[in-house]
């Protein structure tokens, strides 16, 4: 089943006095349960592509469907609802809410969904255990290491069981060992839950972990390579 379908995506914007053509006509189909790395040098359009797919940004031209819904003309509130119920985010700089504990951060999206408090707490505790953060549930982000914070961010992204998890350079701020552990975790979730993961990265390790590698260059898909499941 197709989760994301993009046709002829174009994104132009102006930065100072320069016209930037971030995407020049990208076609893309992402199926359920895929584990994809979108790679390319800085300025190739990776983050822009993820932003448009998630509805954080709008395309200059082209169409995007997420889980069957055309999002190009959606209102802000509808895009928020789409992200809340169908998309999980993992950011490069974790972006946890600093005044909330690890558990409360994980609970936050469930709170927005209206999940009852008891259920929220149970699921958050279970997931924090699964990402290896038992005993740290009541710590606030500034007291956690980078790797621990990114694990909380992963737990937050997947706790609502979204159809799609978008991770923007999730290992960029982590050492290689911590990065590898995090990728192991996400691949395990991908296999166990059939959750779809899309990473933007220029980390070779992330590319190695992926089962499909899409390379962008100057706003165009330069290559789209599928890899064996054992990779």
């Amino acid at each position: 089943m197709t989760i994301v379908e993009a046709k002829g995506l174009v994104k132009d914007y102006r930065e100072g006095r320069t016209d930037v053509h971030a995407l020049r006509g990208v076609d893309l189909q992402i199926g359920e349960g895929e584990f994809i790395a979108v790679a390319g040098p800085s300025g190739s359009g990776k983050t822009t592509l993820l932003n448009i797919v998630s509805g954080l940004d709008s395309a200059t031209a082209g169409e995007v469907r997420v889980d069957g819904e055309e999002i190009s003309g959606m209102r802000c509130a509808d895009l928020s609802r789409l992200r809340l119920h169908k998309i999980g985010f993992v950011f490069q700089s974790y972006n946890l809410i600093p005044v909330l504990t690890a558990r409360e951060n994980v609970e936050f999206t469930m709170l927005l969904q209206g999940v009852p408090a008891g259920e929220r707490r149970r699921r958050a505790m279970e997931l924090l255990g699964r990402v290896g953060l038992q005993g740290l549930e009541n710590r606030r982000p500034p007291t956690l290491s980078g790797g621990q914070q990114q694990r909380v961010a992963v737990a937050r992204a997947i706790v609502t069981r979204p159809r799609l998890v978008l991770a923007d350079e999730p290992t960029a701020n982590l050492d290689s060992e911590t990065g590898a552990k995090l990728l192991d975790l996400m691949r395990e979730l991908n296999r166990a839950e059939n959750m779809t993961f899309v990473f933007s990265t220029h980390d070779p390790m992330v590319m190695d972990y992926s089962r499909r590698l899409i390379r962008l260059h100057d706003g165009l898909v330069a290559s789209d390579e599928r890899r064996p499941a054992s990779a």
Binding site: R81, R83, L84, R156
Partner: peptide
Amino acid sequence: HELGVLLALGMPPR
């Protein structure tokens, strides 16, 4: 930035 994160996570603007 933080408010943008909350919007990205799906918090309705209102």
